[in-house]
Design a protein around this nucleic acid. Structure first.
Lengths: 218, 218
DNA sequence: CCCGAACCGTAACGTACGGTACGGGCTTTG
DNA sequence: CAAAGCCCGTACCGTACGTTACGGTTCGGG
């Protein structure tokens, strides 16, 4: 029996295959026009026949590339033990810094651009994959933290999803759409740190539970 | 002196040319693959030769389409006379409703998708045009309102650009990126109204000036 | 009525690219 | 060393599409 679907979950790619996908990413960053099968083969020093054997077709190659990059970004979890206000703020800020760094990286921009271009037009849904590994993966990772924080009385909200989406908006603002549309935004490390701190501060302003005045600790 | 910024001179398209561009929009909504020059000619009942004579090449046609649609969305200004808290809230909410309606419309989604696909790859910068007529046009329209509101003591902020971007984030959150990536979001009128009200409320929570108790007027 | 301009419909051209086939070299196995 | 795989490089095929060219039709003006 042969695997019909190309490159599914985790899929244990060989190092050589990883090299090929890195070549795809490099080409993607250089400009989406540059991503022809011939160019990939030349850049990766492999034959087109090998590309088709390994990835099926062009869509399969793109899909594998998206998953490959997602598997490398997989950021650390934010443990919710010893959760006090400082730890929560720290976790949220670290998350925001990490995420802003990801979405402003040339690789992520190029990948999101091709996924958007692909969405709704072709059959294999790249957009869905990017969404699942980006926006929704983030949500699933962050919501438990928010809910633990609510349980600990640090913040207050009705709907965890809504709270997350608000945080998402405060962090991302107009950045992602501007980057996707080709706007040059420098996004220095210092700027990212400032943005993350501001978004976190604003989030606490909106959702922070008013602590009972007696609860102040030294 | 030439206007380098958004929304230049109106181009004076003939009605017939407008029909052609409407056909382009319709085709775009049906799927980006459907947008071939042949398909446009057939849909608009015109010859390809005419398309090339009027718009130069495919990029010119897309550019004209983007500007054409932008010229039709041109939402009303939000006058900042008789500005009190209620009027400001009303203006912000109306803006949010309007903008959410635009970005969730199939036409806007398709246009943004093609602009993102185009960004950074081809020569004529569709992304820049969309950005100029979308994100930046909105900012230029809303910032005077915010600054008038600050002058009136209704809200307080350091940087108008920052305040606007925060409002932008509170309104849009993850909606636009999800729509561009092909996520099915219903975005009913009621939901939009609720989102607009929530974003406005949150914006006031973040930037609303604490009124001096003595300043209340009858 | 004739002319020219504008425009429609369609056929034709050139190219770019996804996909396939084949020959030669390198590595592994016995 | 021989046979078998695996893979690189390249040539090749079919097609889709942007672009151009051309014949036919309509319309306004002399």
């Amino acid at each position: 029996m042969q695997e019909t679907s190309a490159i599914e979950h985790e899929e244990t790619l060989t190092p050589r295959q990883g090299e090929v996908l890195d070549a795809v990413l490099a080409l993607l960053v250089e400009g989406r026009d540059a991503l022809t099968m011939t160019a990939v083969a030349r850049r990766a020093s492999c034959s087109k026949e090998t590309l088709y054997k390994w990835f099926g077709d062009r869509d399969g190659l793109l899909t594998a590339t998206v998953k490959w990059q997602a598997s490398q970004v997989r950021a650390g979890n934010y443990d919710r033990q010893k959760l006090d206000a400082a730890a929560l703020r720290e976790s949220l800020e670290r998350f925001a810094v990490n995420w802003l760094g990801v979405i402003s990286s040339p690789t992520s921009i190029a990948l999101n651009q091709v996924a958007v271009a692909h969405a709704g037009s072709a059959k294999s849904n790249l957009g869905g994959i990017v969404l699942a590994n980006g926006r929704f993966a983030i949500g699933e990772r962050l919501k438990p933290l928010l809910e633990a924080a609510r349980t600990a009385g640090l913040i207050d909200f009705e709907d965890g999803e809504e709270a997350f989406r608000t945080f998402f908006g405060l962090v991302g603002r107009d950045i992602q759409i501007r980057l996707l549309l080709g706007d040059r935004l420098e996004m220095t490390e210092a700027g990212i740190a400032r943005d993350a701190a501001r978004a976190t501060r604003q989030f606490f302003a909106l959702y922070g539970a008013k602590p009972t005045p007696a609860a102040s600790a030294g």
